[in-house]
Nucleic acid binder design. Structure first.
Lengths: 382, 382
DNA sequence: CTCCTCTAGTCAGGACTCCTTACCAAAAGA
DNA sequence: TCTTTTGGTAAGGAGTCCTGACTAGAGGAG
């Protein structure tokens, strides 16, 4: 049973404050009268709450006195002490850091490249400095929290990267929380880019996307499962690491999915990273050999989809990643899935920069929760 | 964003009532003074709340005046209007219905057999009458809600059974909610026995069982996934229907798991139900042929485990079902899993009557929520 | 048997929160 | 300038919780 909050007048007052503050965040700069009608509270109650919030330093009089008809109201807005959140993406294409305010506005955005092979120390340095300049550009020293997307598996308890045999991108382990500690006052949330992408697809959807799977086909194979609206991360955070799922390979033999690509010679030299350019060439080619390859690849991908469907029963499987949205791949996989015992709709991903978008949404949501739930002045910037 | 509860004195009063009522449920018959110290509220506040609850018919003076030293207190307890919950299990072994009070006490228990093949109309009749007699034996006409465990896949939206090619138990579809409607006033929750079993294993565990899988090996193959403490049901409720997962079969060929059993001749005549007795004979036998069979079976089961591990990353896989707890099976599967790319701990299930236990726990939890959250008198028995 | 101790329950007063109603202040339009 | 419209404040009321003091009743010690 959850900790039953003991009823008291204190609790009631706190609830009023968070209600008013939430309305202010959603509504933008507002007068007391606007907040009263937005929250359903009475004007005197809102006035009392605003008095407390202003004393605590959470809100400010903007000085704005613009008006329609009638008396000009005093417009209040969040004070700068509300703080910022940081959303960061670490991928083979580079590092992107965004400074966000509590309304989700991107105040600043900085990027940096990474050289391959990516060494953890170099990445950590780049991560730290990119985040720092994004914050500076937004006029702040520190963020109150950060949400990080990385293109590798993440241990959900430590937040560090996990070194699997087929993690193609980073060599060695990286601790994003440690790298960001100097510029982040609060918590640092780290997760896999595929999981964030899935969440971005979910929010872009029609709202009925509560149970689905997102299959990422890029240099690596990854899958995110969304169950009842939230991402399934698993005991250690390795849910959806489907590279070793057993699929029907050439001549009907059972083999791990990666092995199929190995046998087709689609791996980069001496690595388990998939050669994306070569895959794209294969699946778009015309000759008999290209067609045969497409068949083998589609069998492998369909095998992964079938395993995911059997285990998690998604309403739809979204294909993303650098070659997951190739029409030829999609069509070939769909053909197999349609004639399987458990057909499932397939569709291509359609959110650009999905990983960062997902991380951004989560960062904003967390910052909001922090601002509205916690007593505003108790832990401002220091 | 969730619907923010508007703060008001009404809300505060309601919160007091549910706090007091929750304490009364957990603590058993109590005096006002005991409730005050249990909830942290003051004595006058508890008195006020009890006055409301008694007026609403939710609680009663028991008449008990037992005492230690000092003045004898008035002991209050829940009134009979609190109502009962029903937990029902529908399995090949028979139907079991239990009438439960809000504290989880089993007030009555009735059983009935089912004949094979199980026809939906006959099962529905037996279900209804068994539930009715359990309620009668507990002295009630109707239950406020029911939780049903069935040994077949369940559509999570309709609550009806789903007819899959390999549902071994029931023929045709069954609607437990319809069958129980005459004896249940409120909602009827229906789910797969494997899911309930998993929840039962979870509550029997050390409390750190938040992400694990339960693999049921019986006449059918089924799997339950628990992610972050709750069961993953999937879009339609078919998550964990792993009969068609592709596994390495004889001679390394990729095939669906059921097909392995088919080829070994372990299915009942003209059905896809596994012949459990024959499986047990196979895995406990001594000869070379028995050993070979054990190997093939273990490969298939290990293949399913590997797929589940890849997709959902459980902290442990619990093996249950009529032949899942066989030591020979466990040992052979464990040997394969230990040398796989993603080893995972395996252990046998150890909750007896797990499906019913899980349904029972959920029924009690739901009844509690109903009693404490909703205004007590608004929807009592009628 | 009487008095003392201990506990249950009630009463009175105070503090606080939210609400309704009324009133004042200020700005736009007639 | 007057009217209308809207923002903000003040006063009073209702309701909730709390503290502290008081009464009621039962068991035990002397």
């Amino acid at each position: 049973m959850a900790t039953s909050t003991k009823p008291s007048l204190d609790l009631l007052r706190q609830l009023s404050d968070t209600t008013v503050l939430t309305a202010l965040i959603e509504h933008g700069p507002s007068t007391r009268a606007e907040l009263a009608s937005a929250t359903g509270l009475s004007k005197p109650t809102v006035t009392e709450s605003m008095r407390r919030l202003e004393a605590a330093g959470a809100v400010l009089d903007t000085g704005d006195r613009s008006t329609g008809r009638g008396r000009a109201g005093v417009y209040y807005d969040l004070s700068p002490a509300t703080g910022l959140a940081l959303a960061v993406s670490v991928a083979p294409e580079g590092i992107v850091a965004e400074a966000l305010d509590v309304r989700g506005k991107v105040l600043a955005r900085e990027t940096a490249g990474v050289t391959r092979p990516a060494k953890p120390t170099a990445v950590a340095r780049a991560l730290s400095s990119t985040a720092k300049s994004a914050l500076h550009a937004a006029g702040a020293d520190r963020a109150r929290l950060a949400v990080v997307s990385v293109a590798d598996p993440v241990d959900r308890h430590t937040g560090r990267l996990v070194q699997l045999p087929d993690s193609p991108f980073l060599v060695g382990t990286l601790d994003p929380a440690g790298a960001l500690a100097p510029v982040v006052g609060g918590s640092v949330v780290v997760d896999n880019d595929v999981n964030w992408s899935a969440l971005a697809e979910r929010s872009a959807g029609d709202g009925d996307l509560d149970d689905f799977a997102f299959l990422h086909l890029g240099e690596g194979l990854g899958c995110a499962l969304v169950a009842d609206g939230s991402v399934v991360r698993g005991a250690t955070g390795l849910a959806g690491e489907v590279a070793h799922v057993v699929v029907p390979g050439p001549r009907g033999l059972a083999m791990a999915c990666t092995e199929v690509f190995e046998r087709l010679g689609l791996h980069h030299e001496g690595s388990t990273a998939i050669d994306v350019a070569e895959v794209v060439r294969s699946v778009t080619g015309r000759g008999a050999r290209a067609t045969a390859r497409l068949h083998v690849i589609a069998d492998a991908v369909a095998g992964v989809v079938a395993a995911v469907v059997a285990v998690s029963d998604p309403s739809v499987v979204v294909l993303g990643g650098s070659w997951g949205t190739e029409p030829a791949v999609l069509a070939a996989v769909r053909e197999r899935i349609d004639s399987s015992p458990r057909p499932v709709p397939l569709r291509p991903a359609d959110v650009p920069d999905a990983a960062l978008a997902g991380a951004r949404a989560d960062a904003v949501a967390r910052l909001r929760a922090l601002v509205t739930q916690s007593p505003p002045a108790a832990e401002t910037l220091r």
